[in-house]
Design a protein around this nucleic acid. Sequence first.
DNA 1: GAAAGAGTACCGTCTGGATGGTATAGTAAT
DNA 2: ATTACTATACCATCCAGACGGTACTCTTTC
Lengths: 182, 182
Amino acid sequence: MGRNSRKVDILHAASKIVSERGIFNLTLEATAEEAGISKGGLLYHYPSKEALVKGMVDHLASNYREKIENNAKADPKDVGKWTRAYVDVTFKNTYENKDMNSGLLAAKAVNADLLNPIRDLYTEWQRDIENDGIDPVKATIIRLATDGIWLAELFDIYHIGEEKKEIIYARLKEWIDEQKPE
Amino acid sequence: MGRNSRKVDILHAASKIVSERGIFNLTLEATAEEAGISKGGLLYHYPSKEALVKGMVDHLASNYREKIENNAKADPKDVGKWTRAYVDVTFKNTYENKDMNSGLLAAKAVNADLLNPIRDLYTEWQRDIENDGIDPVKATIIRLATDGIWLAELFDIYHIGEEKKEIIYARLKEWIDEQKPE
DNA sequence: GAAAGAGTACCGTCTGGATGGTATAGTAAT
DNA sequence: ATTACTATACCATCCAGACGGTACTCTTTC
């Protein structure tokens, strides 16, 4: 299994189509063209549209999980490390990781069950954040506010400005750090 | 224009299809059947699929705006009234108003420009919340946390439990009320 | 060491079914 | 006469997935 870059290329192509042209334009042909391969070649790697979308979700889920885990484990301070990791990774990713957006949008449209890996992720994170050595209610609110920003952007409903975003980010980080371990 | 209930019925039918069967099953025929009318009759009221989805978004946008406005205006306390209205209406609506969900999902899929009325709404609310007589950063975080809950539910990514939701709600309301006017 | 086979990674075409939208003729109520 | 439909037929387009190839690289067998 030397090369898997082709599979990832296809995933990126699909994401690009969804974010630029919308879910209804995510066809196998368009994806193949965007990825620079033939339809037959695409079907070789992902034997159905659903498999393609599943590939998108699984890919982003494992990436996201890994990032948060690494962040939390590298944190020198134990108290609040999961909450901090969630806030940091999500704030930094919102722009870079457009794949996230598109994969979720596509999965929600094609087959909601494909979102299961994401649901598992959130269940885990919520558990970790509630046992982070700080007030669990405040920690949850911090997580929710972070979600509020990226979900509104994903949905293209409201984009908070860069400056405001920084101020919110700073305040949330303050809140995490000012919490006393019990 | 005595009767417009038929138009609203159609909107409800469309919403139901989107939330139960997904966007790809929102076809004109399915909508007509769900609404109990013929395809011709549906096309009479909404001459295209895009018009139908636009109808969904416009309907929910005006409903939502009205609710928040009424809430804020009926609030006996001036300080924090917009933030309170946003939190109250959104928390109460999350379950009842599934139309919201479906209309947004459909619009995002069909034509993102149809979301403009929603964007305008958020721009207004953000302005009101920032000038609500309380710390604008905290007010914004409260709004974002509220968004975090309903957007995650809309997206079916994470459903916070009823008890936790009540606790979050209470805490957010506390935060609004403990703010001193400047 | 040459032929045969197996596996991988594709390419390009075809078809059946679904769907958006049009059209038309007719009905019932106001 | 106009509004608000019903009912049915129809068309053009799109697309998922099937299918039959091709090309290349290993590995096995004789």
